[in-house]
């Protein structure tokens, strides 16, 4: 196979992919496939090649191929990443283990149930509006050096998979959901007291133990862990006796 037609030297790499089909491949097992990778081949490219040439039953999710849609998140050698921007040869290993995201229930092969993500994310009621960060005509007001992108979350589920608390606690709102609540608070969407009440519980901000793996793993600079800490500060501030 020709790596999307690109010429140049190729390196043989083995992909060890988790397989699961309810009723047929159950319990899950690992299947191995060989690909010839060039330096530009991504893990998603490799999966597409395997699906096209070796196993049409291989299930995975993807859409945009450029880290914008957040559909193709999975674990590559144990790390939660977007497979469309994760290069095969950058892994620096002969065998690459590809597994579905954690936390969310497994549907088939590399596909997890994103409904679990939505269940935790949607209550914040964040409108999905994302403005371009490349607006040349955008002028910043006095005292503002540059705009920080606000609605950066691509709802990929990586933070939820990387979070050690969400891994084990199904009722924890989780990083993306709590970050969404914080952004609602910043934007002034809804009553401040209602927002703080929605997150002031052991399923909300107090469920977080500050491992910050979400901030570490987030491919879109949302930094959910940081936002949870700031959200907590707001909750505590609102409870101080002199706050009223």
């Amino acid at each position: 196979m020709s790596n999307n037609g690109r010429p140049g030297p190729k390196t043989p790499v083995t992909l060890k992919i988790l397989r699961y089909k309810p009723g047929s491949i159950d319990p899950p097992r690992y299947d191995t496939f060989q690909v010839d990778a060039d330096p530009l081949m991504t893990v998603l490219d490799a999966l597409e090649e395997i699906r096209a040439t070796e196993d049409p039953t291989l299930a995975y999710r993807h859409s945009c191929h450029h880290a914008s849609c957040g559909t193709c998140a999975m674990k590559v050698n144990g790390k939660d990443v977007l497979s469309c921007v994760t290069k095969v040869l950058d892994q620096k290993s002969d065998v690459i283990v590809v597994e579905p995201l954690g936390t969310m229930p497994l549907v088939a092969d590399l596909v997890v149930d994103m409904g679990d993500f939505a269940r935790r994310y949607e209550p914040a009621g964040l409108s999905f509006v994302r403005e371009s960060e490349y607006l040349t005509e955008a002028q910043t007001p006095e005292g503002v050096e540059r705009y920080t992108r606000f609605e950066s979350c691509i709802e990929c589920g990586i933070c939820l998979s990387a979070c050690p608390v969400a891994n084990t606690n199904a009722s924890f709102i989780g990083p993306a959901g709590l970050a969404a609540w914080y952004r609602s608070l910043q934007k002034g969407d809804g009553e401040r007291a209602d927002i703080l009440a929605a997150v002031d519980s052991d399923c909300g901000v107090w469920g977080c133990h500050g491992a910050m793996e979400c901030t570490e793993a987030c491919p879109s600079q949302v930094q959910p862990g940081d936002l949870i800490m700031y959200l907590r500060r707001e909750v505590v501030k609102s409870k101080l006796p002199w706050a009223h």
């Binding site: 144990g78 790390k79 229930p105 409904g115 679990d116 891994n167 491992a211 793996e213």
Partner: peptide, 26 residues
């Protein structure tokens, strides 16, 4: 979404002992 409690718990315990891809925070 209905999630089987037992499956969840098993997965949860396995996640605890899987150090791959974890950073300093974990």
């Amino acid at each position: 979404i209905p999630i089987q409690q037992a499956t969840r718990r098993r997965k949860a315990l396995r996640a605890w002992f899987d150090p791959r891809g974890r950073g300093l925070g974990f």
